[in-house]
Design a protein around this nucleic acid. Structure first.
Lengths: 257, 257
DNA sequence: TAGTCTATTTCGGGC
DNA sequence: GCCCGAAGTAGACTA
């Protein structure tokens, strides 16, 4: 049987079931009236209400209300689930170390408790990520700008690893930062950080260029880029183009000041 | 009745139930063997396996495997759920606009379908956030450094809003960036961005200081801060201290170069 | 609605 | 284990 369900179990019945399921390694859902407390990196309290508690065999715990994609409370994988009956309530705790965190759910009433044997794939194929954009840029460097030659990806610097490092048609070093979607000021900062680090590394006599590759850029980010003499190439991870550059100029300015 | 459950329903039965529950506004869980497709900001495919689908009345949809805190696929609130039977399978779709996104879950078999009437609070009290840290700094500005005087929070600049703006004991303008936890290079960048914007705004004759307030800082971030002459004050959102500064010096250097 | 930033971010990859 | 950055980030808040 792939699913076992208890309806309106007593706290004792729920406890027995939970303990046996913890052994078995099934996915558990508990729906009932509860209060929730969390203490760890932060702390929180949640007053009484009906919620759905999901306990995963990998240690993850999720408390969901009827709203939002994000659980109202949770515990990440690697936590340990335990159950008990205290003060006439079913108490489910999920605890982990490093950081020390504890989630406590106290059920005044359990409406339903289910255990499900989960099998099958969980590996997702995703398209349109920054990794796809990077592949695209390496296959068609002209999308960054005519004559761009990529040399290294994830090149390390004192400020962290830069997405793509290469040289422009004039032989000047270029740092390329890739973003799969429209970017704001932080992407301009990030690029500036890598460019500055590389300039310190190469010496002040060697000016380093910065190019932000992203579908689009907010006004403020555009100003910040312009202020620092950086360029922007408008490219999306999944444009269907295969051969040369896009109809209009791939980058919107010619080079550094 | 607060929970209705169908075990191993036929696709037709599952469909009828889903349609009536969509009207009612209950929280739905469907456990069964399914494939999942997503297309929108990105795209993904997930092969056959047993998963838990959660459909919320606010339009959120979650597909969970037996691992991870994050759903393997999802749809944010505001989406519209629809169900049908196609090619002998129960198909649940969740669609939204802006951005245009569609999640499709095709069930080869439904092991369990439950509908739950959710009531009660969903407002969480959280402690230890950056907002708490800000309150703490405004109450005890000496935690930033002796003589610091906060003037404005969320002060806007060409690079975005700075957490706290004020003046040091010598009357120099100070930008303070707050982080509730240990920070890396990006926080140093962020601070640099605000400081540079403010210097442009005030004129180059007026040097602007930058202070990062956070529990701790990675080595690399510390180097980046030092390079720009910024300071770091070690403060956590929830330190129990109430009166003066902490025993050891609240900030670790005297001022700008 | 778009821009900007926080988050108990989570997650993965490298060292 | 820590560091670093991406994510279909989500969610909150403001203009």
């Amino acid at each position: 049987m792939s699913v076992t369900t208890l309806h309106d179990p007593s706290h004792r019945e729920a406890l027995w079931e939970l303990e046996s399921v913890f052994e078995r390694g099934d996915l558990i859902t508990v729906f009932g009236r509860c209060e929730v407390d969390y203490e760890g990196r932060a702390a929180s309290e949640l007053g009484p209400g009906d919620r759905l508690l999901v306990l995963k065999p990998d240690g993850a715990a999720l408390v969901h209300t009827d709203e939002q994609r994000t659980p109202v409370n949770w515990q990440p994988p690697g936590s340990e689930h335990r159950a008990s009956v205290r003060d006439g309530r079913l108490r489910v705790r999920s605890e982990r170390e490093n950081p020390d965190e504890m989630l406590t759910v106290r059920f005044a009433a359990v409406h339903q408790l289910s255990a499900m044997a989960v099998t099958g794939g969980r590996d997702l194929d995703v398209h349109g990520s920054e990794a796809d954009l990077k592949r695209r840029i390496l296959d068609h460097p002209d999308l960054v700008e005519a004559g761009f030659e990529p040399v290294e990806t994830e090149r390390d610097s004192a400020a962290g690893p830069m997405d793509v490092f290469g040289y422009d048609a004039a032989g000047r070093p270029v740092v390329v930062e890739l973003k799969r979607r429209r970017v704001g000021p932080s992407a301009a900062s990030q690029l500036a950080r890598y460019v500055a680090a590389l300039e310190r590394e190469l010496g002040d006599d060697e000016p380093v260029r910065g190019v932000l590759v992203a579908p689009s850029v907010t006004d403020r980010a555009a100003e910040l880029l312009a202020e620092q003499g950086f360029d922007h190439a408008s490219v999306t991870p999944g444009d269907s183009v295969d051969g040369e550059a896009t109809p209009d100029a791939p980058n919107d300015s010619a080079g550094p000041t």
